[in-house]
Design a protein around this nucleic acid. Structure first.
Lengths: 145, 145
DNA sequence: ATCGATGCAAACCTTTTGCATGCAG
DNA sequence: CTGCATGCAAAAGGTTTGCATCGAT
């Protein structure tokens, strides 16, 4: 945890962003909840528990910066708003249930070869991807029976 | 074109939706522009050329219905708003340039086997997917030189 | 004739922005 | 000290909703 905070604040510093207490608070929440997908509002609620004076605009401004620097990932599940997650190790992808909204995550490397082919074919440098499968999850399938 | 309109209005009818002139106008525009990704607003502008009295709310309400029935696909490129496209034949996927915003489409079947594995592993019935690769396109790479 | 569909305007929700103040470097 | 970062409130942008009217069945 400490290591990670340090790593990330280094990224901020070396890009000439100041290490403010708000930024550290936001990062603490993100790191403590690696697995979670936060909307800006949800993250705001969590950060307020540490620092009640933080403003929602600060959350938005920093999520923007963090995503540019590759610290967070922006996820577009819904179209009406964004979600964010810490992007640490490998990317993972999502199975989204159209019925209950549950999100199952998975990792896979099958896509790597595929990506390389695409890059060659279109002369396109891929730096990120978002893979989403929509369907009906186990629980909802069982309910229908 | 006529065939397609007929096919789609049949889908509407058999789901107890009325075949209104507005719905037909929206479908005409979508079918005439199969390759295009429309925001609700953009589609609204096009439909107004055929029927100047149409309302934006009608566009939204019907895009919702069309997507539920599988007539259109919802695309979340941006997170702040949705785009829509007619979903006819095979799905296609997108390469999105982070610099200029250009969208390149491609088809591929590599993913089909992968999907089958996922379905088994998670007991999850996949009905749709959205695959997006973000990066830098050929033109923008050349500009940097 | 009925009830779903429409147009309009207002409401809503998420995100962005302007401005005065605060604080990291 | 300087200029970036912040908090607040207002504005903006996209989408949804309430209501009276219209029109497909």
């Amino acid at each position: 945890m400490e290591k990670l905070i340090e790593k990330v604040t280094n990224i901020l510093g070396s890009n000439n962003y100041k290490i403010t207490s708000q930024r550290k608070d936001i990062l603490k929440v993100l790191i403590k909840n690696k697995e979670r997908h936060f909307s800006a509002e949800e993250l705001y609620e969590e950060v307020k528990k540490i620092n009640p004076d933080v403003g929602l605009a600060t959350i938005y401004r920093n999520l923007e910066i963090f995503s540019e620097l590759g610290i967070t990932h922006q996820l577009d599940f819904d179209g009406n708003f964004k979600k964010y997650e810490l992007s640490l190790e490998r990317h993972h992808h999502h199975l989204i249930c159209k019925n209950c909204g549950k999100i199952i995550e998975f990792n896979d490397d099958v896509l790597e070869d595929f990506e390389k082919d695409l890059e060659k074919h279109y002369n396109f440098k891929i730096v990120d991807h978002q893979i989403k499968f929509y369907g009906i999850c186990q629980d909802c399938k069982n309910e229908d029976e």
